[in-house]
């Protein structure tokens, strides 16, 4: 059993890149539509909510509401982009397109494939998050150059959420199940992680829950970077995101082994 599991883990540190490049090639063909699509939604929310609510709310935590919200939007769109890429796009490559099956004929292992898919989803998250951060910086809602510190955090956020979503993809019999993950996990997480309003607005118990959520850790790193403020507990937040990225990877590898290599 142990030996069999070891055989599906990544074979080396670079095999996954072939899977990443495959996804990049596919993405390049539709890049423009993809970029516009993944930008439009968060931008509309940012300006719609930011200006509309901003008038009523005034300042939040010592900054304009739109600048406060921008950091939440960056983290949230990284979460959404990598979750979506994993449960829809990667799932279709595993399930109906049989792309993974073809890759398993080669010297790549299941672990290599999963790593490549996670790295790709993190790339998509980085693109989506960085685009918003960039627009926010240009419009003066984020500080330059400290906003650059947000970039590695956006990528790590993408990796963590892709890794979590991969467990869902491994368990779901069909696409119909993903909506549960989105409505029951990722959407509530936005409200419990301080994306749209400070966590202190929540009842104490919910604040405690928020402490453990990956999105909250991500926002606690991204917001100070974008507002050029000192951040607390950087190592803790990064460590938590790393755990969310690494542990689920082994779980989904084991689940996919059972599913695909029976």
């Amino acid at each position: 059993m142990g030996e069999a599991f070891a055989a599906v883990l990544p074979a080396n540190a670079w095999n996954w890149a072939a899977v990443w490049r495959r996804n990049y090639l596919a993405w390049k063909k539709v890049a423009l539509a993809s970029i516009l699509g993944s930008l439009a939604d968060p931008m509309i929310s940012l300006f719609g909510l930011g200006t509309g609510l901003g008038i009523m709310i005034g300042r939040v935590e010592g900054t304009s509401y739109i600048a406060f919200l921008a950091a939440g939007m960056v983290a949230t769109s990284a979460m959404v982009a990598s979750t979506f890429e994993t449960i829809y796009a990667a799932f279709s490559r595993m399930h109906d397109r049989r792309t993974w099956e073809a890759i398993l004929y080669t010297r790549l292992t299941l672990g290599d494939i999963l790593l490549g898919e996670l790295a790709w989803a993190a790339t998509r998250a980085l693109l989506a998050g960085a685009a918003i951060a960039f627009v926010a910086a240009v419009l003066g809602y984020a500080a330059w150059p400290s906003v650059l510190y947000a970039l590695p955090v956006i990528a790590l956020t993408g990796l963590a959420f892709a890794s979590l979503a991969m467990i869902v993809a491994a368990l779901a019999p069909s696409y119909d199940y993903f909506v549960f993950y989105q409505t029951l996990v990722t959407t509530p997480m936005m409200f419990l992680s301080g994306a749209f309003f400070p966590l202190t607005q929540l009842p104490g118990a919910l604040q405690q829950v928020g402490r453990f959520l990956p999105l909250a850790h991500s926002i606690d790193l991204i917001r100070p970077a974008m507002l050029d403020r000192p951040a607390d507990g950087i190592a803790l937040h990064i460590g938590a995101l790393c755990i969310y990225a690494v542990l689920p990877f082994f779980i989904s590898t084991a689940l996919f082994r059972r599913r695909l290599m029976r």
């Binding site: 095999n15 072939a18 063909k29 890759i103 080669t106 010297r107």
Partner: peptide, 16 residues
């Protein structure tokens, strides 16, 4: 969605 050539290219990379 790939061309014939791209299919071969991508697959060859899986063999390193």
């Amino acid at each position: 969605d790939f061309t014939v050539r791209e299919n071969l290219l991508v697959f060859g990379r899986y063999f390193g």
